[in-house]
Design a protein around this nucleic acid. Structure first.
Length: 275
DNA sequence: TGCCAGGGGGCTC
DNA sequence: GAGCCCCATGGC
């Protein structure tokens, strides 16, 4: 039996092992944006699915019409202790690992990941989250709880450059119109056959996707889920620059450096602490 | 190669 | 309250 979590019934997932599931840290780890704080937890929307999530009596309770989706979304079949065992040679990140140790790499829908991270470019999280929610309200499907699903590719084809601009995308508006057209022609399964080197180049063919955004798509899209992808944003860059070369080398050669990157991001960006 | 292009929220001072 | 920066990228 899985010690981490279990689908209890057709509306409930329970997570038992909170040492590898830190709800607040996951929400603030910069990989999920469309969630709302509730009185005792969060309401989260991913793609066309939503869930109410709260912590209660040492467990996390996920209440949703789509338990199978969220079981997979939170990667609950994977024991993160197996990853953590490989972190013994990165003791210089111990503080960040301790603080963010309950972060998991989520399996977000591919299209939502691409669009979200194009909009994230040179933007602050609060501001582009607002944009993502407005786009969802304008172009997405209204769900039973009154919230809006992230727009599908077909729905977002209706958005013009002026629409994207009006909803806060700024100069990324033109990229988005082009990227939506390009994504329509994409065979996602073909991407899965590529090596990481080829994959990151293939993703950068989408307008608005450079090396950093491509690395985010590789790490956070559930279809790709490359745990050795290492997005270097301004926060990670600052940390790398303050790191001795030998530490940098250990970090950048680690098979799960994507997960380590999440710990560093959460620690420096959200908690505002220095490694 | 270097510079430029939205806007606004949050941070530092 | 001014000045700076933000999960960068493409075009010139």
């Amino acid at each position: 039996m899985n010690r981490i979590a279990k689908i209890i019934d057709n509306k409930t997932v329970e997570v038992f092992d909170l040492s590898q599931f830190d709800l607040d840290a996951i929400m603030h780890s910069g990989q999920v944006f469309r969630y709302f704080k509730t009185q005792d937890g969060y309401t989260l929307i991913a793609g066309a699915y939503s869930a109410d999530i709260k912590e209660n009596n040492g467990k996390v309770i996920i209440t949703t019409e789509s338990p199978d989706f969220f079981y997979e979304y939170f990667d609950l079949n994977t024991d993160y202790n197996s990853y953590k065992k490989t972190f013994e040679n990165v003791k210089f990140l111990q503080n960040a690992i301790s603080a963010g140790g309950g972060i998991r790499i989520l399996k977000a829908p591919f299209f939502e990941t691409v669009i979200s991270f194009i909009i994230s470019a040179n933007n602050n999280i609060k501001r582009f989250t607002k944009t993502l929610n407005i786009l969802s309200e304008q172009f997405g499907t209204k769900l039973a709880n009154g919230l809006y699903a992230f727009p599908t590719l077909t729905q977002l084809e209706a958005a013009t450059e002026d629409d994207f601009k009006a909803f806060g995308c700024g100069y990324r508006a033109a990229y988005l119109v082009k990227a939506v057209k390009q994504l329509k022609e994409l065979d996602l399964t073909a991407l899965n056959d590529l090596s990481n080197d080829r994959l990151i180049k293939a993703l950068q063919k989408f307008c608005g996707v450079g090396p950093k955004v491509a690395a985010c798509i590789m790490l956070f899209s559930g279809d790709l889920h490359k745990l050795d992808s290492f997005p270097i944003d301004t926060w990670i860059d600052k940390n790398l620059q303050s790191m001795p070369d030998f530490q940098k080398s250990i970090l950048l050669n680690h098979p799960y450096k994507g997960l380590l990157q999440q710990y560093i991001f959460y620690y420096s960006q959200h908690l505002r602490k220095n490694i």
